[in-house]
Amino acid sequence: MAWTHFDGPERQVFREAAGLPGDAWRRARGWALWKAPATMAVLDDDHDGLTAAAG
């Protein structure tokens, strides 16, 4: 959620509110990094709206 919906300052507020330790935050960031190309890999021209939402 932090990388999909929030920008820098908003992401920091979310991080502070979540209260997760640094290692959990790093794992979440890695998951978001994995999810983006995995999502884009299954999309084709018939899913233009999903491509825009994923990008």
Rank of each mutant, 00 (worst) to 15 (best):
F14H: 08
L33G: 04
G8N: 07
A18W: 08
G49N: 13
P21D: 15
A17K: 12
H47Q: 14
E16L: 11
A28I: 13
E10D: 11
Q12W: 01
R26H: 08
P9I: 02
Q12P: 00
D7E: 10
M40C: 09
A24E: 15
G55W: 01
R29Q: 10
A18P: 01
D45P: 01
E10M: 09
E10I: 04
T39K: 09
E16H: 05
W25R: 03
A32W: 03
A2Q: 06
P37S: 06
G22R: 02
G49P: 05
A18E: 14
M1A: 11
D44Y: 03
A38E: 03
A53G: 06
A53V: 06
A28S: 07
G49F: 11
V13L: 13
L50N: 05
D23M: 09
A38G: 01
A24P: 00
A18K: 08
A53T: 05
L33R: 05
P9W: 01
A18M: 13
A24I: 15
A28C: 08
A24C: 09
T4C: 08
A54S: 14
R27F: 06
H5P: 00
A28G: 14
A18F: 06
L20A: 08
R15S: 10
A2I: 14
T51P: 00
G55Q: 09
G8K: 12
W34G: 02
L33T: 12
A32M: 08
P37D: 05
E10T: 09
W31D: 12
K35E: 14
A32L: 06
A36F: 05
W25S: 04
M40K: 13
D44H: 11
A17G: 04
A17D: 13
M40G: 08
Q12H: 04
T39A: 11
G8S: 07
A53H: 10
R27K: 05
A2C: 08
G49Q: 14
A24N: 07
R26F: 09
H47D: 15
A36R: 13
R27N: 07
D46E: 15
D45Q: 11
G19I: 04
P37C: 06
G49Y: 12
G30S: 10
W31G: 03
D48C: 07
L50A: 13
G8I: 04
T51Q: 14
D48F: 08
A18V: 13
T39E: 13
A38P: 00
V42L: 07
W31N: 05
P37Y: 03
T4K: 12
A24R: 06
